[in-house]
Amino acid sequence: MIELEGITKAFGKKQVLRGVNLSVGRGQSLVVIGGSGTGKSVLLKCILGLIQPDDGVIRLDGQDVREAPRDAFLARFGMLFQGGALFDSLPVWQNVAFRLLRGSLKRPRTEAREIALEKLRRVGLGEEVLDLFPAELSGGMQKRVSLARAIAAEPEVIFFDEPTTGLDPIMAGVINQLIREIVTEMGATAITITHDMTSVRAIADQVAMLHDGRVQWAGSIAEMDTTSDPYVQQFIHGRAEGPIAALR
């Protein structure tokens, strides 16, 4: 469904991506792992067109994304941002129903509010948060609201950028479980970026490890533990010694 071919991106003299090749099938959940600063978030932003790659091709269902009509293309995606990225000035329900209140997917406000409530219930929140503002919520609740927003318009593809960062282990477990359930329920294609190996095991069908701007290793979740790749082994076991420099 999503194919990346030879994606490169540099910021000034810093070459972040050096030719990334990757593909994700429809309905699959791919988790991208790798050290900090290896370009994982840049990769997601390149797919969404938030950052223009210097070179390479990104295809969605075989079509080059640069040739796809922008609105129709973005309507197929949902994204959970690392910090939630909820709009401070809007109450929770308007955050969740943002896409349903404007543009091509616009619905009447009462219907949009109903859908927002339904999606909030799906992520374990109730009516009491509908009219609160994001600043009034805890970190875990903000992540849930952000997740509800990502799935509100029932996208075909969902991106999760560090979904459990900053959460306690129990809340992280809840978010991991929700992501897995929602992706399976919706039949959506998912790409998740994380450092958290618990998340990897909970969410992934496929795993790709990014190192030095390239895909160092890719395989199924079952293969990850048995691979002899020293980079993967160092990363998943969190060892200071190995081919990946601890100080980058």
């Binding site: 969404l48 067109g49 973005l74 941002f81 690392q82 943002f98």
Partner: peptide, 13 residues
Amino acid sequence: VTEQIDALVTLST
């Protein structure tokens, strides 16, 4: 800086 502008774009706005 809190990625809300990026979020707007992903929400087709």
